[in-house]
């Protein structure tokens, strides 16, 4: 029982998350306390969920992209773009009507999905490597976002807009509901339709998938569009949180955090199997790490160093060469075999 539990891809991420939370408990006895203030749940755990919402969303999209052996470097810029579009749309809206809110959301999501489609087009039709293809949007997207906001930090004086990221529903932050909804959507599409199977199959062996009659181009296209969709919503939350849009700085580093969350969650950068729940836990680990560092008084600047070390450890653990060097001979044999594969395919 314990063995099968340990074999589960979620085991180690959960252990790490629990350890981080326990460290917090050690420094702050009230860490796990959740109380009701003004009919709203409050406490550090709720805080982590709330603050981690944008990262969780973006990581969900990134998970599917990485499962196809791709990567989406453009999400940070798309976040900025989404916030910029929405904020500009509602900037001067009158309080009375909700129509501007929905218009803003629809417009932001639409434009960001077009941006995703652009990435998907370059990757699947032109055949550009994903890193290279999405680099374009990473550079130019932020420029476009600034173009939308005219280089200013656009402030929103339209209250309904702040509900997206700051509102409460049934005593819980509204952003948590958004995450759950998107997660359920992703889980439904990938586990209740064949989409998940196709994504894993295209990521694991594209040629074999083609010969099995799967249209990998369309799959790639959809995955990048979905990533754009997730980034759009994440961008809405982030911009709504601060009731403004900053084309230059919104969503900075988010692509990297998202990749990190996906990798911690057990999805390999080499594509194939993906773990949406693992990704969620990965994103929560990153968020609680940040919270912890703040709460126990380590300089917050350490955060990046810790992240760097975590990335390296996770990658090393995924590397067959490293495992064969560190752990025994059984795995070493596997490495030899994979070396042989290379030789055979190239000769």
């Amino acid at each position: 029982m314990l063995k099968s539990l340990m074999k589960s891809k979620l085991f180690w991420p959960i252990v790490i998350l629990v350890i981080i939370l326990l460290i917090n408990l050690f420094f702050d006895r009230g860490f796990f306390q959740i109380e009701v203030r003004n009919g709203r749940l409050a406490g550090s755990l709720v805080d982590i969920l709330n603050r981690g919402a944008p990262l969780m969303l973006i990581s969900i999209g990134m998970t599917l992209v990485i499962a196809t052996k791709g990567i989406d470097l453009g999400v940070g810029s798309v976040i900025a773009l989404s916030g910029a579009i929405a904020a500009t749309t509602v900037a001067d809206a009158s309080e009375g009507s909700l129509a501007p809110l929905f218009a803003a959301i629809a417009l932001a999501i639409f434009v960001c999905m077009v941006a995703g489609a652009w990435n998907g087009f370059l990757v699947s039709r032109i055949g550009v490597q994903p890193i290279v293809a999405t680099l374009i949007l990473m550079v130019a997207g932020r420029g476009v976002a600034q173009l939308v906001t005219q280089g200013q930090i656009t402030t929103v004086y339209y209250d309904p807009y702040t509900f997206i990221g700051g509102g409460y529903l049934l005593g819980l932050p509204f952003s948590i509901f958004i995450v759950v909804a998107v997660l359920l959507l992703a889980l439904f599409v990938t586990r209740k339709t064949a989409m998940g199977l196709f994504i894993e199959s295209v990521g694991s062996n594209p040629e074999a998938s083609r010969l099995s009659g799967i249209n990998s181009k369309n799959i790639l296209m959809m995955v990048y569009i979905f990533s754009g969709f997730c980034a759009a919503i994440g961008g809405l939350i982030l911009s709504s949180n601060v009731a403004s849009a900053d084309g230059n700085n919104a969503g900075l580093w988010y692509e990297l955090d998202a990749i990190l969350a996906v990798v911690i969650g057990g999805t390999s950068l080499m594509g194939g199997r993906f773990y949406l729940m693992g990704t969620i836990i990965g994103a929560l680990i990153i968020q609680s790490l940040t919270t912890t560092i703040y709460s126990i008084g380590i300089p917050p600047e350490t955060n990046m160093v810790v992240k760097a070390i975590v990335v390296l450890i996770v990658c090393l653990l995924q590397s067959p060469e490293f495992r064969s060097k560190v752990f025994g001979s059984f795995k070493a044999k596997k490495a030899v075999e994979s070396e042989d594969d290379k030789g055979v395919t190239l000769s």
Partner: peptide, 30 residues
């Protein structure tokens, strides 16, 4: 060293390097 001997993707290794260097500079002073 990491890229060659552990066959890691340059992209991910230098990404970690990016975090590390930026974090270390914060550690020196904010």
């Amino acid at each position: 060293y990491l890229i060659h001997y552990y066959n890691l993707q340059p992209f991910i290794v230098t990404l970690a390097g990016m975090f590390l260097a930026r974090g270390l500079s914060y550690l020196i002073s904010v």
